[in-house]
Design a protein around this nucleic acid. Structure first.
Lengths: 121, 121
DNA sequence: ATTCGTTATATCTTATGAGATATAACGATC
DNA sequence: GATCGTTATATCTCATAAGATATAACGAAT
């Protein structure tokens, strides 16, 4: 009988893992990072606070969002500067759809990874 | 009716993509890069030549192989220095098994990605 | 007009990784 | 023992990424 893959390695705890994203003509468009950020913007109403929650610099968060908005035909994050509370941000309906889609996608992917990990043994 | 995800984006050519690897207790162990390198070592009998084919520096190739051998309980690449042709390298039977496994894995993963890409539309 | 917290942007510094280069060790062949 | 092409390893430089810092613009509220 052929050896199982797991017997090739010293460390027993083997598993298949991976990551998934949506590409818009060849360029990575929407991965796991943005999802969390969008959710936090929805929750906090602010890019700044969302970034802090993720321990991400404002700069990085802003660049990420800027990319997203540029690649999408519809703005995913809509911002306003100034105003009573200095301004703020919200996510669009389309962003909510993307988040929901990605959540479902991740569920199916987890199942796939689980099955493949089983197959190792 | 709800908009399809693809209608959110300007660029029609949307697809789901991703990458997959095998983890040995939390650390990435075997991804798509090593597979190609191992195959080329098998083909050329030399780390040096394999690296050149991949346009990878010898250093990087060697580090990659060293990691692999360290994490695996069994050496995946066996090398010899000196000798009639200066030395050379070959891959072990276990490496061949890993390559075969990963090839099958990629086939199934492609199918998964294909299905998910369909679902976008 | 001053205050406020946010968005938006530029710039500078620093850390990390990648690549380039150099060199020793090796051992069969001649 | 000289030659050869390879493995093995150290070191140095450089490009790119990441982070830190600074600052302007904004507009409602007072």
């Amino acid at each position: 009988m052929e050896k199982a893959i797991k017997d090739i390695l010293v460390n027993g705890a083997l598993k298949v893992n991976g990551s998934l994203w949506v590409e818009g003509n060849g360029k990575r468009f929407f991965g796991p990072g943005p999802v969390e950020l969008l959710e936090l913007i929805q929750e906090t109403g602010s890019i700044n606070q969302a970034a802090k929650r993720m321990k991400m610099s404002y700069k990085k968060a802003w660049e990420l969002i800027n990319n997203l908005n540029n690649m999408a035909g519809v703005p995913l994050v809509v911002t306003s500067t100034g105003g009573d509370n200095g301004g703020g941000s919200a996510i669009s309906e389309e962003a909510r759809q993307l988040i929901a889609y990605h959540r479902d996608l991740r569920v199916r992917f987890s199942k796939f990874l689980e099955e493949e990990t089983q197959r190792l043994k």
